[in-house]
Design a protein around this nucleic acid. Sequence first.
DNA 1: AAAAAAAAGTTGCATATGCAACATATTGTC
DNA 2: GACAATATGTTGCATATGCAACTTTTTTTT
Lengths: 211, 211
Amino acid sequence: MEELSIFKGIANNDIIKMIKCFDAKKIEFKKDRTILSNVTNSNLIGIVLKGSANIIRYDYNGNRSIIESLETDSVFGKTFSYLDDDVIVVATSDCEVLLFDYDLLMKRCRKNCECHTKLMDNVLSLLSLKIIDLNERLEILSKRSIREKLLCYLNLISKKKGKKSFYLPLTYTELADYLSVDRSAMMREVKNLKDEGFISSNGKKLTLVNY
Amino acid sequence: MEELSIFKGIANNDIIKMIKCFDAKKIEFKKDRTILSNVTNSNLIGIVLKGSANIIRYDYNGNRSIIESLETDSVFGKTFSYLDDDVIVVATSDCEVLLFDYDLLMKRCRKNCECHTKLMDNVLSLLSLKIIDLNERLEILSKRSIREKLLCYLNLISKKKGKKSFYLPLTYTELADYLSVDRSAMMREVKNLKDEGFISSNGKKLTLVNY
DNA sequence: AAAAAAAAGTTGCATATGCAACATATTGTC
DNA sequence: GACAATATGTTGCATATGCAACTTTTTTTT
């Protein structure tokens, strides 16, 4: 997947102009800080410039579920999120986020600055990547057993890293949330996969043996 | 959800210009015909103008799964799909589709026709809606039991239609595929929900009683 | 209108999975 | 370095779910 950034192909001084143009704010957040609470009622669109974050949802029972893991260049905001429930965005590492008003981006600015076109182009690409990510998670969640979900996930990671060995980018607890399965049941299945020789693991370092 | 169309806000004669501009083809398909085979290796972007279609994936075992149900104004194509496996788009009713080259849309045309901007605006909106749809399905699939998946799905439909009573837009067989659960197990759970008074049903007509 | 194909509906069975309840290990904080 | 908090690892148990194998009903095709 080629490198992509919201400002790709835009000159530096133009970037400054544009940031003014749609009243963007670049903000830094420490790990575990809330970047955006009550996403549902906010009209902001955000882009992760550095670091990572999670979109987290609490349903009526207070159950936490990780909707999405945001990496660099992920786009988030009301339009790209749920309509209901309690959705917040939380930094999973120290990170830097660009926040601006969705409407100001969409409805081209009065000055109609020339870079706006390029910027929308970039946003479009970011959204495409997001859709691919969502489809990936759907592929995983559409598997019917924990084993299949795990293998599907691990193979995706492996394919992305281009290696059979890699470090899990999530804690096992987070992974269970991401796969939407019971953590202890997942640990059991990890063990089974190890015992049966499909994977070898040492803590968070994993190696796909077969498949 | 407000009305949206790829050509919204664009004058008729401009539409004709634009269709030339990025070499778009409007094609009609009969129910059950394949709209696009081998999506993965195609560079086309498609928009459903009338009717409906399914994005279907066959995995290595030949298992069919419905990736997505496309309704009017849905966007589909390689960029918005899987990287691997056998993905095809099949009409689920007589329908009309606009097909054009993805690159010609993205890289603004040489003439840089003024409506291009508006069109990208519209595509952006359609993609946002698509992301909401994907998130909806993720919400459903992240539920851990068939019962919860069903209720989640039915409530979404009910909310969209604005009624407690509605007709299922899928067959039960398709619904099971959509929820990624065993059909007979799902039927059993539908029956349980009926017996316990959560829903009442008569064939494909359903009514949410509680909840 | 008969035949064929697809969908809906049902049931028994084996087991994978959620849940609860732990112990141990790791990480973060003062 | 001590304490708290969080993550990891394990196990027993009840049951929800996938699977297989049917019958019946509905839809489509000839």
